[in-house]
Amino acid sequence: MENDTLVIGGAEIRNRLIVGTGKFSSYDLIPEIVEKAKIDMITVAIRRARDGIQKPLIDYIPKGTKILVNTSGARNAEEALKIAKIGKELTGSDLIKIEIIPDTKYLMPDNREVIKACELLANEGFKPFPYMMPDLVAAKEMVKAGAVCIMPLGAPIGTNKGLVAKYFIEMLRNEIDLPIIVDAGIGKPSHAAEAMEMGVDAVLVNTAIATAKDPVRIAIAFSKAVEAGRIGYLAGLPSEKIFAEASSPLDEYLLGFLKK
């Protein structure tokens, strides 16, 4: 597995588990997770600073970790661009996760605005990572608009329901020639493994790690599940059958011997 690096918009990651930093009880958990689960990329949001005394999140992020700023809070493409510009000043990076969410109950992304945002931001030199409702037609538009990957939701943010949208994500995996990152809804390590076994390129997990009883330990479990799923996919999963097939076919000798 030495050479299984994933490159997205020029950024290289070896660990295909991307970790979101929201909802943690303490930022102290973040460096521990990055170190122990060997995380290469994390996501962050931006907000107004409360004061200059409290240690900012950036001080908790180990050097060398790739930081993907999201545009959470944006309700349209223009707002996403404003946030992206601030994010770039903070991180020095062109990578931006486009999150445009007008719906507050299910936190559904607005695919139409996300397509617009991909174009607007790509034209400004950003590398858009669009968080989207898995829809093949919309994903193709995002590719045309300059996305560097596609981030379909597995299930709504924070629900831990797993791959509710599996079939629709499979369509993206089959038809889109960019990395597919399943983002949102992954609730347990087996969901992450299932996603990777499907052949998606990476998964993003936040709530399931941040709200577990032991976030560091579960991050390690997620990391291993992602790796296991990836290796399984690369190994080539055997096909499912309707009827049983014995693992050790009987031979003439044994049948004869048993009949005696």
């Binding site: 979101g20 930093t21 929201g22 909802k23 943690f24 930022y27 973040i30 996501t43 962050v44 949001a45 931006i46 907000r47 107004r48 600073a49 200059g52 900012p56 999140l57 950036i58 930081i67 700023v69 999201n70 959470s72 601030i86 903070l90 943010i157 983002d183 949102a184 993003l204 936040n206 709530t207 941040a210």
Partner: peptide
Amino acid sequence: VEIITMMGGG
């Protein structure tokens, strides 16, 4: 003047 920082997010 607005002062903006990173915060936890997914």
